[in-house]
């Protein structure tokens, strides 16, 4: 693959891949390593991919697999059955309240969710991937993606609500000095 084509591929996807990696790895250094490793694998294997339009899905799939491989090595994989189901009717949030939260606070809330839900949720919010592409990246049926998205969003709403409550100023009743 010519250098300019590879550079174009990096420019098109590295920021989104980094954001996905950051939501998974929860550390900027690990996210950068994951992103770099993904392109390193592309340079050694992925360049032979014939369908150039599949490059984006290939990169996200590779990053996710690398993350899962690392977690397995560290023995930090939980079974989806062990996870809480998510509130059927999560808190109804106001967009303006969420907008007032720092980006880092929103990211913390997202990172609090188990990776099984966090991965489809982040891909959903990155916006440039279809549901079908998310299913391919995570290697699960599309119905599973929808189910995990719904549960993941319920978890995220609850996590955001907790942070908003924590951020609210609690006004103590005034006492009058005698």
């Amino acid at each position: 693959m010519p250098d300019d084509v590879f550079t174009g591929l990096v420019d098109a996807h590295y920021a989104s891949l980094y954001r996905f990696a950051l939501s998974l790895a929860r550390s900027a250094a690990d996210a950068a390593d994951l992103t770099q490793q993904t392109f390193f694998i592309w340079a050694t294997k992925g360049a032979s991919l014939r369908d150039a339009q599949k490059a984006k899905t290939w990169l996200f799939t590779t990053l996710y697999r690398e993350f899962i491989r690392t977690r397995r090595r560290e023995g930090r994989v939980s079974s989806i059955e062990d996870l809480p189901p998510g509130d059927q009717d999560p808190p109804d949030l106001n967009a303006e309240d969420v907008a007032r939260l720092d980006t880092q606070v929103v990211m913390d809330a997202l990172q609090e969710i188990d990776p099984a839900f966090r991965a489809p949720l982040t891909l959903f919010y990155l916006k440039d991937l279809s549901y079908q592409e998310i299913a391919e990246i995570l290697d699960v049926p599309i119905g599973t993606v929808m189910s995990r998205l719904s549960r993941g969003k319920a978890h995220l709403r609850a996590a955001l609500e907790r942070r908003m409550q924590g951020a609210r100023v609690i006004e103590f009743p005034r006492t009058h000095a005698r």
């Binding site: 920021a15 954001r19 900027a28 950068a32």
Partner: peptide
């Protein structure tokens, strides 16, 4: 939309 915007605002190193 707000959450997506926040995520989009994260800049790589």
């Amino acid at each position: 939309a707000v959450v997506a915007h926040k995520l989009d605002g994260i800049q790589p190193p």
